[in-house]
């Protein structure tokens, strides 16, 4: 039981999703290096946090459903959790940065 045993109908969409997710996350993290100021940088990791994580989690759901031959959707929990919690951290960091840059 490994990635090579996944049937083709699940493997093809999972491949596309994984490549998209990997590239999106990579570009998002690259933004940490390429952008100049902190206020521009704070937008970059959101890319990996939303669509990148979403693509990978969808691919994980597809492959585990195909391997177990029943509906396995507990990755939905991680997706929801990331979607709800990542903005909290970003907002707090934004307010902290605004407070510190004003001093």
């Amino acid at each position: 039981m490994s990635a090579a045993d996944v049937p083709l109908w699940a493997a093809l969409p999972a491949t596309v999703l994984l490549i998209c997710g990997g590239l999106l996350t990579l570009v998002g993290s690259l933004g940490l290096l390429r952008l100049d100021s902190f206020f521009a940088r704070i937008h970059a990791p959101t890319m990996g946090g939303t669509l990148g994580a979403g693509c990978v989690l969808l691919a994980s759901m597809l492959t585990s459903t195909a391997l177990a031959e029943r509906l396995v959707i507990h990755e939905l929990l991680i997706t929801l959790f990331i979607l709800i919690t990542a903005p909290v951290t970003t907002t707090l960091l934004m307010r902290a940065a605004m407070l510190r840059s004003r001093e």
């Binding site: 039981m1 490994s2 990635a3 940490l32 990996g48 990978v56 960091l93």
Partner: peptide, 28 residues
């Protein structure tokens, strides 16, 4: 600044989590 480091740590844990998921897909 300190906020840059925290932002980097935040990115690091999300990427780490995605890496673990990727290992999960790879080993089934």
């Amino acid at each position: 600044a300190a906020q840059d480091r925290i932002l980097a740590l935040d990115t690091l844990y999300i990427n780490g989590m995605l890496t673990i998921l990727m290992l999960g897909i790879g080993f089934g």
